Amino acid sequence: MSKEILQRLDQLSQAALASGDLLPVQAQEERLQDQGLSFFVRWVSTLAAKDAASVSIPGGPRDPNFNPFLPPAPALTVDDASATHNIVLNKFAVCDLHLVLADKVFSEQLHPLRDIDFRILADFLAAQGGLGFYNGGGPAGASQRHKHTQWIPQAADNGSLALYQDQLPAQAQAGSVHRHPVLDFEHCFVRLLDTQEPAALSESLLNAYRLACKELSLVPGQDTLLPPHNMLVGQGWMLVVPRSVELVEGISVNALSYAGCMYVRTPEQIERVRQIGPLAVLAQAAYASSHKQ
């Protein structure tokens, strides 16, 4: 990903904030500890705006006939940045420079991720680090059917797989599969190739995803759709979590929840997460582990 595109993204963000096309991020948050892991639990103003917008949009954001990515909003889109994807500032961002990487042609969000999906993610990860993620289907937190991944930059208070690094093997070989001893639900981590070369990283991402899907028995059915799942990538690891439901007592769980940032719809839900416990929320949204820790 060229410095020119990154500069254009920053300029686009400033212009969209000034015009009102991009909403500023305001948050109320609390930090919770659970079995040695640290979670941010946040109520974010943009999510309240997203819920309000879904009422005014015909059919709502999950209506199959509603698609914000065909075409994406011009004020939020970097022109001609990729032959295969539109690079779009997320109008309902959870942090600065929260990007949506959407296919230029329609394909289903639950179709297996392909090499082109990982190529666009690898461009950002190789150049800037940060976290790439994918909400595979409604039960995994996806609000749109149109295939897209997302990316957020690296920052102290952004979601990150660094949350888990202390209890993952530092010298793990690329392509090796691991489970975290604290996560009592179905998941797997796959070690990535240590490289900042986009093509090599993209290949490592695709191989890791296919390996994780095999390890977790995530296979396409007759309609070619995979079971719902989240995929996260950053800090040299890929994490894949099969998903059973989106909501746990009204709390929406998506990929970023598994990166240590739980975004709630109301400030009152922060206290509910405290009562249940962050790890219990994540477990209830996933499947019980079939592996002994």
Rank of each mutant, 00 (worst) to 15 (best):
P153T: 03
I120H: 07
A288T: 14
E271H: 13
Q28F: 07
P242H: 09
A140P: 07
H187P: 09
Q196Y: 11
Q222L: 15
G221N: 12
K214H: 14
V100C: 14
L239F: 05
L131Q: 01
K292E: 12
D184W: 01
V25R: 06
G250H: 02
G138P: 11
A170W: 01
L206E: 12
G36A: 03
K50P: 01
A155E: 00
D79S: 15
E30H: 08
D96I: 00
N65K: 13
A286T: 09
P72A: 08
Q7P: 02
H187M: 03
K214C: 12
Q222T: 13
G137W: 05
V44S: 05
L121G: 02
P278R: 01
L226Y: 07
D223L: 11
D117F: 06
R31M: 08
V55A: 14
G36T: 06
G260S: 02
L76C: 01
S107M: 03
H291S: 14
Q235H: 11
G137S: 02
A212T: 05
F124E: 02
G221I: 03
R179F: 06
H111I: 00
R145H: 11
G175K: 05
P227L: 10
R42I: 00
D166K: 12
L12F: 05
A140W: 05
K147S: 09
G20Y: 06
V233P: 08
A75D: 12
D51M: 14
G36V: 03
L76N: 06
A48R: 12
T224S: 15
D184H: 14
Y287L: 15
Q7G: 10
A212I: 09
E108Q: 12
A162I: 00
I270S: 07
P58E: 04
E108N: 15
P61G: 00
D117L: 04
P198N: 10
G60C: 07
A75R: 12
F40W: 14
S289M: 02
E215P: 03
F133G: 01
L183Y: 00
P227E: 03
H180K: 05
R42F: 00
G250T: 02
I120L: 08
D194H: 13
A212L: 09
Q173L: 14
Q128R: 15
P112T: 08
S244Y: 10
A73Y: 01
P61T: 12
L279F: 07
V88G: 08
A81S: 15
